[in-house]
């Protein structure tokens, strides 16, 4: 009987999300992390910049209602010279994981995915004239969009240190 329990425990450990490390080779679907929904006001740990496995970053505003979204320095460097940034339209409703635009560099188009659901509130229209800014300051002046959040993000988000580790692994 006891041995049966231990087998079940081992199986549980093997299949639990926490036990899995993100691998560059394994299928990296949006991982649903089991968490109880938090109210906006208590999501303090989200106030620092968070990164996704798709190489976007988000940062929440002081009132917790708006997220600023951009692409990471790592992504900007990997893409090469950016020649155009396709921005969404203001007031567009977006769902977590949706493509809200695309970046073009050296004949390559890559989608920009939003890790949060909500409504596009503001765009960095300076990027329309100077898409190259993305290569200069992707995590600062060259933010892409601000999204009024309708639901807390549920996908995997990493801190700066975790993200650094993630990119070094890949």
């Amino acid at each position: 009987m006891a041995s049966r329990y231990s087998v079940a425990r081992a199986a549980r450990q093997l299949t639990s999300v926490a036990a899995k490390r993100p691998s560059a080779f394994a299928c990296q679907q949006w991982r649903q992390i089991a968490q109880t929904p938090r109210l906006f006001t208590v999501s303090a740990q989200l106030k620092e910049k968070k990164y996704t496995e798709d190489h976007e970053w988000i940062e929440v505003s002081a009132d917790g209602k708006t997220y600023t979204l951009g692409i990471s320095e790592y992504a900007a460097k990997a893409l090469g010279d950016v020649v155009y940034i396709e921005l969404p339209q203001v007031d567009l409703e977006v769902g977590e994981g949706d493509a809200i635009g695309a970046v073009e560099s050296v004949k390559s188009a890559s989608d920009i995915l939003t890790p949060v659901s909500g409504t596009v509130a503001e765009l960095n229209s300076a990027l329309e004239d100077k898409p190259g800014n993305i290569n200069k300051d992707p995590e600062g002046d060259a933010w892409i969009a601000k999204i009024t959040v309708s639901k807390e993000p549920t996908g995997k988000l990493m801190s700066k240190a975790e993200y650094k580790e993630f990119t070094e692994e890949a």
């Binding site: 990296q28 050296v106 004949k107 390559s108 188009a109 890559s110």
Partner: peptide
């Protein structure tokens, strides 16, 4: 002539 589309993986 070449063109590319990149996704996460």
């Amino acid at each position: 002539g070449s063109a590319y589309k990149l996704t996460r993986q």
